[in-house]
């Protein structure tokens, strides 16, 4: 049975008597145990609205969300909290609090009226801190954490709630690339090792494609599509969703490319390996087109690390890529 399922869900905003503004509609998705799912989509497509609706921060405009087979609208806040825990983008200042106490707040739906801990609660908190790989942070003050450390702690807090489903809203925003990869790998591992379902929204296309078991793809206008990342690339769903001026999704490499409309002059590059790869990148960046051997310009990368620019028999030697670009540009003019 799916942990989580939506049926004909429509999300958006309702203000007073004005007609509601629907951001996305007809959303039918489900989540199973141990699944790691990334919600992707361009800005403004409604990722945050969908996440906010799923975690109950705003009511759905239409349709139903089912949790363990029960309609979430019929469940009490405590009942929902025992199944779903969240990591939000809210920048909060929690006050003077040790990391372990913050993680302990995750026990909220399981403790008595004043929040006293049993041995079981202590055990779960220790486990959550370990599972989020935040052991060395346990006794630090929350106010002193970096963004990446803070995110780990918030994940630990969400784990301490012992949910069947974790929903994270852009957990990798504000982080540098290594930290982003670390968080994604951590979440993937948690989903697979603990059997919890994890759903997160992200702008990190590349990491999502590499880590996610499944992708929910929410295009700007149109229906939400789900599938394995590779399937969505091959059937062109990605290209469709992320199409925009100046940028296109390159299905060959799984990355975005700036549209090379400026490449009027073609340059042939001969050389091998890393040096050749970055030379081609540099040429595209500078507005040239990497062409075949018949091009007017030819660049030969020599073994000794010198670039030779040749046009009509005239050869000029350059000892860096910056030099090469400058030479091409000045001659071009």
């Amino acid at each position: 049975m799916a942990i989580f399922k939506t049926q004909d869900l429509a999300v958006g905003y309702k203000h007073g008597r004005r007609p509601p503004r629907v951001v996305a509609r007809d959303i039918d998705v489900s989540l199973h145990r141990g699944e790691f799912v990334c919600l992707l989509g361009p800005n403004g497509a409604g990722k945050s609205t969908l996440i906010r609706t799923l975690v109950g921060m705003q009511p759905p405009l239409d349709g139903h969300v089912y949790l363990m087979g029960r309609d979430i609208a019929d469940m009490s806040a405590i009942e929902v909290a025992q199944v779903i825990s969240v990591v939000l983008t809210d920048r909060m200042s929690v006050g003077i609090m040790a990391v372990r106490d913050l993680v302990g707040l995750g026990r909220y739906p399981h403790t008595d009226w004043i929040g006293r801990f049993t041995e079981e609660d202590e055990r779960v908190v220790s486990w959550a801190i370990r599972a989020a790989r935040a052991e060395d942070l346990a006794y630090r003050n929350v106010a002193e954490l970096s963004d990446g450390e803070r995110q780990k702690v918030m994940i630990a807090r969400a784990l301490a709630q012992q949910p069947d489903l974790m929903i994270l809203d852009e957990p990798t925003a504000f982080l540098d690339l290594p930290r982003r990869a670390e968080i994604m790998a951590l979440l993937q591992d948690l989903a697979h090792s603990t059997g919890k379902a994890i759903l997160l929204s992200t702008h990190d296309l590349d990491l999502a494609l590499r880590c996610a078991d499944r992708i929910y793809l929410l295009p700007f206008e149109g229906a939400l599509q789900t599938g394995a990342p590779e399937d969505l690339i091959l059937n062109g769903a990605f290209e469709g969703a992320f199409q925009s001026e100046g940028v296109r999704f390159d299905a060959d490499t799984g990355a975005f490319k700036l549209n090379a409309q400026r490449g009027r002059t073609s340059v042939a590059v001969s050389g091998e390996g890393r040096r050749a790869y970055w030379t081609k990148r540099a040429l595209e960046r500078a507005g040239f087109r990497v062409g075949d051997a018949g091009s007017r310009w030819r660049v030969v990368i020599r073994e000794d690390g010198v670039w030779c620019v040749e046009r009509g028999g005239v050869v000029r030697e350059c000892d860096s890529i910056a030099d090469l670009i400058a030479a091409l540009k000045s001659n071009h003019r």
């Binding site: 405590i78 909060m92 913050l102 909220y108 739906p109 009226w113 004043i114």
Partner: peptide, 23 residues
């Protein structure tokens, strides 16, 4: 004194507090 536990949850902000089962 009866609101001690909810007040602690509210340190995380209202959204988190709600997600932990607080009305």
């Amino acid at each position: 004194f009866l609101c001690i536990k909810p007040l602690n949850a509210l340190l995380l902000g209202e959204n988190y507090a709600r997600s932990m089962g607080l009305n």
